[in-house]
Write a protein that binds this DNA or RNA. Structure first.
Length: 312
RNA sequence: CGCGGGGUGGAGCAGUCCGGUAGCUCGCAAGGCUCAUAACCUUGAGGUCCCGGGUUCAAAUCCCGGCCCCGCAA
């Protein structure tokens, strides 16, 4: 075994925090952590620390949270940590060349897809939207072009038929953590030969925006159902009913036949809450009206005066 | 002090603006109908209307304070 590396970890949300915890249990030394600045969030707009910051502080590790990654003082501090490698997991910023080249071993990134497929900010939702049966995790070296660097290791993960963004994330995070440790060990041992990505196979998974959750009833029921899963828990799929926001937490395709106009309620009784789409009928199985709890369709129908023929 | 909605029998809701014997859809119990049923009919049990003050002859409803939940936003 060679000497432990000095590692700087950059990341922000919960999956990154879990990966950091795994890294802390490994043989290498995390000498510093970089995360997004604390921001007001949640009801009441309280300032909230990122999950990664919390893990770092709990372990007594120095934390930097620069507003700008090009801030000279930040770069100087980073340099003073003298990392052998920088590990990046969902940090949330594009890194400048000065950081990519700062450590001798460069930046090691954990990406939640089988690159070159699904490059970009939201590989998990897009894999579900597209109905993939297999996705996975890739470790690679960061280069200036987004998620286009040479691949170190990959591992496949099968998607369940009812996979949601939340459940897939839960599957991928431990795989990614394990793959990261394996990658670092492999690099130290000189056992990994980076493999260039096939640019012709590249596809992109752009950032999901709140607005993307709005249901377009012209789409086929099967597509809407996948979007419901892909956007769970965020931003979730939603529509409007009686002028109010109605979130759809769970849905299923009950028919592929055309019936009624897109968005029309074609059934609202003990048998279910069904909506016509551009192709087929979608059953809304679990919904949530604004200001209210999420409810199974049967519960929702007890209190809501909703009838066939209404349009969403 | 970011904006807003809500807490009503076991569940989901209406009623609150315009105080005056607590209602709807279900569930539950008993009986009936039926070959049968998650169907249908009849009857019934079950509520401190979140908590604490105040106003009033009278408060779920108005006023003040508190606790909890939720949507937006981030």
């Amino acid at each position: 075994m060679s000497d432990p590396w000095r590692i700087v970890f950059m990341g922000t949300p919960a999956p990154a925090a879990a990966t950091l915890e795994a890294l802390l249990e490994g043989p290498d030394r995390v000498v510093g952590v970089v995360t997004q600045p604390d921001r007001p969030a949640g009801r009441g707009q309280q300032t909230v620390k990122s999950p990664v910051r919390r893990v770092a502080e709990a372990n007594g590790i120095a934390v930097l949270a620069p507003e700008k990654t090009r801030d000279p003082a930040f770069l100087q501090a980073l340099t003073s940590w003298a990392p052998d490698a920088i590990v990046v997991v969902a940090y949330g910023r594009i890194l400048p060349r000065s950081i990519l080249e700062l450590a001798p071993q460069g930046c090691i990134n954990v990406h939640y897809s089988l690159l070159p497929k699904y490059r970009g900010a939201a590989p998990i939702p897009w894999a579900i939207i597209n109905g993939e049966e297999v996705s996975g995790v890739t470790t690679m070296r960061l280069v200036e072009k987004m998620d286009a660097g040479p691949i170190y290791l990959q591992e496949e993960v099968a998607l369940a038929k009812d996979e949601t963004a939340a459940s897939l994330t839960q599957k991928l995070v431990p795989v990614g953590a394990r793959l990261l440790l394996k990658t670092i060990a492999g690099l130290k041992a000189g056992e990994i030969s980076p493999r260039a990505q096939d640019e012709d196979q590249a596809s992109y998974a752009p950032l999901i925006k709140k607005e993307d959750g709005r249901v377009n009833w012209q789409e086929p029921a099967s597509v809407i159902e996948r979007r419901v899963r892909a956007f769970s828990p965020w931003p979730s799929c939603y529509t409007r009913w009686n002028g109010k926001l109605l979130k759809i937490h769970k849905a299923s395709v009950v028919s592929t036949e055309r019936r009624g106009a897109p968005g029309e309620i074609v059934r609202a009784d003990r048998g279910g809450l069904w909506v016509a789409t551009g192709e087929g009928v979608l059953s809304l199985d679990e919904v949530q009206l604004e200001n209210r709890d999420r409810l199974l369709a049967a519960e929702f129908l007890k209190g809501a005066r909703i009838d066939r023929g209404q349009r969403l």
